[in-house]
Design a protein around this nucleic acid. Structure first.
Lengths: 230, 230
DNA sequence: CCAAAAGTGTTTGCCCTACACCCATGT
DNA sequence: ACATGGGTGTAGGGCAAACACTTTTGG
């Protein structure tokens, strides 16, 4: 048996989007040296637990959520003192969720769980602020070449929601007509016959749904999703 | 202290390119159950060793090489029996090297170290074949949006080398004129005044060098490297 | 003079960009 | 009727794609 004394943890950077604001989920620690400090949800991996299962469990336990999209981001293990108790290597996961689907609840190790606007995030414990920075970059990049924006929206959404999401995350203006034209040309959203009105006034808009099956089909045929606007 | 009994390892997927063929580095195990089995270079992380340092050390020890490019690829830890002795999580690294820079030598744990053409790679031990597949995909993708092809070539190279590298890795034909035009338009390669002739006949070609400084400068100014040809 | 590889411009068509007005609803 | 947000078409320019001949060297 190898003599090695390193512990392994997972952490989740969970993004949520609502009404023009991008949020990140953080939890407040209840125990240990960093009590009351805000950190990312996460924890140690169990001996017989796959990494993915570990993140999913932690997100459930610490904040009561189940995500729409989850992928491995990066493993943090170059700073051997990133946790000052003992050596911990953390596998960070990038996740997307529609915040409206959940009421946050902190049950196990977390005192509190809360959404923070990305741009008003307090300094987090450990190297978690770096993780958020990296994940935020990944989100920006990935949004342009993979249809992950839909995982931040509900099942049904207005075109303006989608457009605002892109504007907000990519931090630039988008031409409404060109955007709609492009998305529709992909053929991966379906128009429903429902119309809704959001604010107090204004014309109601049609609801759309993302057609994941169609997207998967297209991917097999060398389709390339790509949104890049000036 | 947390009760956890998981070991952590690193593995390297090292690509080399020479004369129209893409190679991967593998080593033959000298000890243990998988003796004589080909696997990727790698090994356990030391308690006080950053992950990056661990891969670099293993590549040096097991094959005597130092790479041009190294980045984290993915952490393999979902299959809890990927190593059947005990639970091991492996952080896989993606690396590029110019094979002409090194004579492979296997000194420590490895019986032998050898370059295999990617398309004629034997089945590797553990889940290392999956790692190679993933790394190969990463290489193909990254080649189109980051100038990492240069890390597979020597300091000086012919334009035809670069072109063939792209052809070979992306597995499609490239129009020589359009390719040269595009690369030159980026302004990230410099023409030297040297000319060399490769085969027995044919017109000698000019040597070029990659201008990394210029590239880094351009990156700060919102430059986007991008090679995608029909 | 023939074979082999390097070097070089132009035309065409498509897609991205830019841009402004009408429509449906609530107050 | 006005304010608010939804919905729509077109013209021009730039860039990528397609394409073939000349040059230099060795045998």
């Amino acid at each position: 048996m190898i003599d090695q004394n390193i512990k392994i943890a997972v952490d989740g950077i969970v993004f949520g989007y609502e009404k023009g604001i991008l949020y990140v989920l953080a939890v407040q620690q209840r125990f240990g040296k960093l009590t009351n400090q805000w950190v990312l949800p996460g924890g140690f991996v169990k001996d017989d637990e796959p990494l993915l299962a570990a993140v999913e469990r932690e997100l459930k336990e610490e904040a009561g959520i189940t995500v729409n999209y989850l992928e491995q981001l990066h493993t943090f293990g170059d700073d051997i003192h990133r946790d000052d108790r003992f050596r911990v290597i953390s596998v960070a996961y990038f996740a997307l969720v529609n915040p409206q689907n959940f009421v946050l609840k902190a049950d196990t190790d977390a005192k509190d769980a809360k959404w923070f606007p990305v741009n008003q995030l307090p300094a987090l414990g450990y190297d978690h602020s770096d993780m958020v920075k990296l994940a935020h970059q990944r989100l920006k990049n990935k949004l342009t070449y993979q249809p992950i924006g839909f995982d931040l929206l509900g099942e049904e959404f207005l075109f303006s929601d989608l457009e605002n999401l892109y504007c907000c995350i990519l931090e630039r203006d988008i031409d409404r007509r060109n955007f709609r034209k492009k998305i529709l040309s992909f053929g991966i959203v379906n128009e429903t016959d429902k119309v809704v009105k959001i604010g107090a006034s204004g014309r109601p808009g049609k609801l759309f749904t993302f057609d994941k099956l169609k997207y998967n089909q297209l991917m097999k045929e060398n389709f390339q999703f790509d949104i890049r606007f000036a």
